[in-house]
Measured scan of single mutants.
Amino acid sequence: EINVTSHGEEQAKHWIELAKRMNLDVEVEIHGDKIIITIK
């Protein structure tokens, strides 16, 4: 399980695309200006 804290939408999209390509599950939480991505 990987937790990524992203401070930008572009960076977040990059991680989500990467996870989808690798067929991994992704959870995205938004806390103000921080985007927390959990890849399982």
Rank of each mutant, 00 (worst) to 15 (best):
K40T: 09
E27Q: 13
V4Y: 03
V28G: 00
T38R: 13
L24W: 11
W15P: 14
G32M: 08
H31Q: 08
T38Y: 03
N3L: 10
R21A: 14
G8T: 12
K13D: 12
N3D: 07
S6T: 12
A12T: 12
V28A: 01
N23F: 14
T38W: 02
I37M: 02
D33I: 10
L18D: 05
L24D: 01
N23T: 09
E29R: 07
H7P: 06
G32C: 15
G8L: 15
I16P: 15
A19Y: 06
E1T: 13
G8Q: 09
K13A: 07
H31Y: 08
S6H: 12
H7I: 13
S6N: 09
E10N: 07
I16G: 06
V28K: 00
E9N: 06
Q11W: 15
A12S: 04
V26W: 07
E29N: 04
Q11G: 10
E1C: 15
I2D: 05
D25M: 13
V4Q: 09
L18F: 06
L18I: 11
T5S: 08
K34A: 06
L24N: 02
N23L: 15
I16Y: 09
R21L: 15
G32E: 10
V4S: 07
T5I: 14
M22C: 15
E1P: 09
L18C: 15
I35M: 03
E27N: 06
H14T: 06
T38E: 02
A19V: 10
I39S: 01
I30S: 02
N23K: 08
K34E: 05
I39T: 01
I30D: 01
D25A: 10
H7F: 11
H7E: 11
E9R: 04
I39L: 03
N23A: 09
H7R: 10
W15I: 15
V26N: 00
E10Y: 03
E17H: 05
T5F: 01
E27R: 11
I2N: 08
H14W: 09
N3Q: 13
Q11S: 12
H7G: 05
E10T: 06
K20Y: 14
H7M: 11
K40H: 04
H7S: 10
S6F: 08
E29V: 11
K13Q: 04
R21W: 15
E1W: 10
I2R: 05
K20M: 13
T5H: 07
V28T: 01
T5D: 11
I2M: 09
W15T: 06
K34C: 12
R21E: 13
I30E: 02
R21I: 15
T5Q: 08
M22L: 13
I16N: 05
I39Q: 00
E9Y: 14
R21V: 14
V4T: 06
E17F: 05
E1G: 10
S6G: 08
N3K: 14
E1R: 09
V26D: 00
G8E: 11
T38H: 08
E27P: 00
K13M: 10
K13Y: 11
V28L: 05
V28W: 05
Q11R: 08
I16S: 02
I30M: 04
A12M: 14
V26F: 13
A12W: 15
N3T: 10
I37K: 00
T5K: 10
S6W: 03
A12P: 07
V4N: 05
A19E: 14
I37Q: 00
I37E: 00
I35C: 04
W15K: 07
K20L: 15
K40F: 05
G8S: 12
K13R: 07
E9G: 05
H7K: 07
K40I: 06
I16M: 05
H14M: 10
M22P: 04
H31A: 05
I36E: 02
I35D: 00
M22F: 08
E9P: 09
S6C: 15
I16E: 15
G32W: 11
H14S: 08
I30W: 06
N23V: 15
T5G: 04
I39R: 01
N23E: 04
N3S: 07
K20R: 04
L24A: 03
H7W: 14
E29W: 05
I37N: 00
H31K: 07
I16F: 11
I35G: 00
